[in-house]
C-alpha cells in the first residue's frame, strides 16, 4: 500500500472531530482503487467520525484529506424521513441529483441509471413500492441503490449489515460482493466481519481514535492472535463496550443466501 498521489482517498495525519473535540487523531491511510476495506473497531473508536470526516460531515482538525474520486455514501441507520409517502424510485432518484444542474429535470439517462441502481440491489420488482413498507434490510438496500445512482468510484458504507435479519444480511453480502466484482472501491464500517469475509481485501482497525491495524485479512487474524482483545496491548481497553470484531455466526451457503425449499 504505497502512498499514491492518485489514490481515490488519501489521509495524511488527518484528525477529525466536532466542535473542537477531537475524535480521530492523526490517521494516515491511503485507500487504493479496487480496495474493499473493512473499517473495524470497538464502539466509540471513531469509525463513524472518520467516515463522516471523509464525507465532509465532521470537521478536519489537522493533517490533510485528499479526495480524488466521487464518493457515494450509505449512512448507518436509515435516516430517511418517513413523514411522507415515497417510493423506492423516488428515494433512489435523489442520489442522482448532483449529476445535473438544479434547473434540469431528470433525463432518460438519469431514469435509467436509477432503475439500474435499484436492479443492482435486487429490488427491481419493488421499485414502485413505498419505502416505509419495506423491511429494514430492504431499506438498507434502497440506501445502497441511492448511493449507486450517482455511479460513484468509491462507496462509503456505515454499518450496512447492522440490525438486519440473517436472510437479508445474506442478500446484502451478495450485493456487496457484486459491487466488489465490478471493481468498485468499498469502504465498509462494520462489526460483522464474517458476513463480509469473502469480499473484504483489506482491514483497517481503529482504537480510541488511533490507527490500530492496517493490512490484509490474514495478517489481521495473526494480529488478533498476537494481541487478543483485552490483553491491554498499547491501549487500555477497559471502556470497550462493543463486541470484538470477529465473532462466529452461522455460515451461509456458497452464494451467500439461505437455502429455501
Amino acid at each position: 500500500m504505497l502512498m499514491n498521489a492518485t489514490s481515490p482517498l488519501d489521509l495524511t495525519k488527518a484528525s477529525f472531530g466536532y466542535a473542537g473535540k477531537r475524535v480521530v487523531d492523526a490517521i494516515t491511510v491511503s485507500i487504493e482503487s479496487g480496495d474493499v476495506v473493512a473499517l473495524l473497531g470497538p464502539n466509540g473508536s471513531g469509525k463513524s467520525t472518520l467516515v463522516k470526516g471523509i464525507l465532509g460531515l465532521a470537521d478536519l482538525q489537522g493533517g490533510t484529506l485528499t479526495r480524488n474520486a466521487t464518493i457515494g455514501y450509505v449512512p448507518q441507520r436509515h435516516s430517511l424521513s418517513n413523514a411522507v409517502r415515497a417510493t423506492v424510485t423516488e428515494i433512489v432518484a435523489t442520489g442522482r441529483l448532483t449529476r445535473r444542474p438544479w434547473w434540469k429535470s431528470a433525463s432518460t439517462a438519469d431514469e435509467q441509471a436509477v432503475a439500474e441502481a435499484i436492479a443492482a440491489v435486487g429490488l427491481a420488482d419493488r421499485s414502485r413500492d413505498e419505502v416505509s413498507a419495506l423491511s429494514g434490510g430492504q431499506q438498507r438496500r434502497v440506501l445502497i441503490a441511492r448511493a449507486l445512482a450517482s455511479d460513484p468510484q468509491v462507496l462509503v458504507m456505515d454499518e450496512p449489515t447492522a440490525g438486519v435479519d440473517d436472510a437479508n444480511q445474506a442478500i446484502l453480502a451478495g450485493v456487496l460482493a457484486d459491487l466488489a466484482a465490478e471493481g468498485r472501491t468499498l469502504l465498509i464500517v462494520t462489526h460483522e466481519m464474517d458476513a463480509l469475509a469473502e469480499v473484504v481485501t483489506r482491514i483497517v482497525c481503529l482504537d480510541r481514535g488511533h490507527l490500530d491495524f492496517d493490512g490484509s485479512p490474514s495478517a489481521y487474524a495473526a494480529h488478533l492472535t498476537e494481541h487478543p482483545a483485552g490483553s491491554g496491548h498499547h491501549h487500555d481497553s477497559d471502556d470497550i463496550t462493543g463486541p470484538i470484531p470477529v465473532i462466529g455466526r452461522a455460515p451461509l451457503d456458497a452464494h451467500g443466501r439461505h437455502r429455501h425449499g
Binding site: 464525507l55 455514501y73 435516516s79 430517511l80 424521513s81 435523489t94 442520489g95 441529483l97 448532483t98
Partner: peptide, 22 residues
Amino acid sequence: TILRPRLFAVANDEEYSRASGL
C-alpha cells in the same frame, strides 16, 4: 415545481444531501 426533487432530497435526508454536495 422546478426544485421539487432537491427540496424533497434535502427534507428526506439532510445528512446524505450534505454529504453528496447539495
